[in-house]
Amino acid sequence: MTVLAQQIVLGLLLGGLYGLAAAGLSLVFGVLKVLNVAHGELIMLGGYGAYWLFALLGLDPFASLLLVIPGSLLLGALLFLVLFGFVVRAPEETRIKNSLLVGFGLALALHALAVRLFTADDRSISTGYGGAVITVGPIAIPVIRLASLLVALALIAGLHLLLARWRWGKAIRATAEDWQAALLTGIDIRRAYLLAFALGTALAGAAGTLVSVGYSISPSIGLEWTLKALIVVVLAGLGSMLGTFAAGLFVGVAEALSAAAFGGPYREVIGLVIFLVVLVLRPQGMFGRAR
């Protein structure tokens, strides 16, 4: 019983990062109607950003978020201007196809670049407080992972407020819902696209930072994170960032439970099972609206 509870807690902690990773992918997909399969690579880059800030400058990984997030925003804006901005010029039906080609190309390029620059070694940030644990009864909660979960939640809440209150946040939501109507109200939808892509990249960067501190990064983690984020997005449906986060927690716990029940190798399988079940039973996702 204790083992199971421990697994659930660890699943929740990891699930928070799934939720954060998925929120960025969901925002980009929902607004630009573009599937960025290089999202995991952007997470990987964010992780390296935090890693090197720590290794070279001794910057605390949580403090480095203050640099990684703005840096990722800029990177996202740049990627939109040189790559994805051309994809969204195409009609919606051809965007997904084109974005897959661009995204896979970008993923391969970023992966190769990371191997070249950083080597293929696994890396993780070990801070002085890295081993600290809070015990609640028989359950041990790693402090760093708990802090990561809280940071992830705070970022999601911040994003939610940004989209709900900020003038351009509303414009981004309007563009996601009906880009033609958005144009008619005078919204520069290319700017809405750019902002959404930059925000999505910033979320990826933040997720990468948290991965590098609680877990580990290497140039090849991208695909795995893209896949996890995609599963969560399919489960949650588009439109609600808080729903996406909740779905992330759900996938984390489901993985932990299946690992406990069937053994470690099966933890990766459960996500794909969820993916299939959702596609069959509720294609719009748990929190999405039927179109």
């Binding site: 509303k170 414009a171 309007a174 819902e177 009906d178 033609q180 109507a181 439109g239």
Partner: peptide, 29 residues
Amino acid sequence: HRIVERGLAVVPEGRRLFGSMTVEDNLDL
């Protein structure tokens, strides 16, 4: 997107409102 600024506004066929938002948000936009 600059045509509205010139003083032309369109009520499109089928209304094309932002359905998941409030009345106030739609007006605001």
